[in-house]
Amino acid sequence: MAAIEIRDLSKSFGPVRAVDGVSFTVEAGTITGYLGPNGAGKTTTLRSLLGLVTADSGSALVNGRRYVELDHPLSEVGAVLEATNFHPGRTAFNHLRVLCTAARLPVARAEDALARVGLADVAGKRVLGFSMGMRQRLALATAMIGDPGVYILDEPANGLDPAGIQWLRGFMRHLAHERGAAVLVSSHVLAEVEQIVDNVVIIAKGRLVRQGSLAELISNGQAPVVRVRTVRSEEFAATLERHGGQVEAADGVLRVRGLDVESIANIALDERVLLTEMTQERGDLQQIFLELTGEEQS
């Protein structure tokens, strides 16, 4: 059973079809990036999953059940939705104390959670004076208060400074890879999550456009390309083609498909050709993302 299973989920707000037949799953121990431009339907999907929005059709299950059917939701799912979900006049500790009281968790959990996100020093301070980064940490503290096995994070990097983003990445890795949690993290900025996600689900205009591992996305359905530079490029291009490669030449650089780095190196050695550069081209992920989501690169 998948930790998160979304099947044929659809939701309209008036004439706007916010989510249109989206299906995907998230397994325990993995981080899945839920990517798409702003307004693509990410938040609506996540809010349906959490029982805050009632879907028109389809299902969204956590640990095989609808969120509203969970008896102790905080112990199964931790969610971070927006950084502004706090009463400004309430202290960080009291915010968590209210949650613990409602969820019948010992109040000690509040102190633990604050310590884990590095907010123990400001536990007694009112949220009014908190920076965006501190609010985001407090939101994460609320998500982990019941020590759940599933995390749903909606744009958690919003408003974080580079150090905060670094911390967040480490934190998500820790949750998924050390504690075995399933992490679903949405973002409209691919670069924020590309370093840490195992899988990606890409949504645009309410529809799912791509789903799979990060590696599959990078290759984008095409064979990987190796860039080769050599002084005798025309001759070497012919050689490579004899060995089964497809070669594209431009400005003295050969872009080779159908042969991997090792075979090209061997061929060069056999033919005694001096290579001055050889790299595996990493598809421009941002470009792929923009193409998939139908956004023009500015």
Partner: peptide, 14 residues
């Protein structure tokens, strides 16, 4: 006003 309703309903979805 402060959208704490979200948290309230996450804790108690019923």
């Amino acid at each position: 006003r402060y959208q704490t309703i979200t948290t309230t309903l996450l804790v108690t979805p019923k």
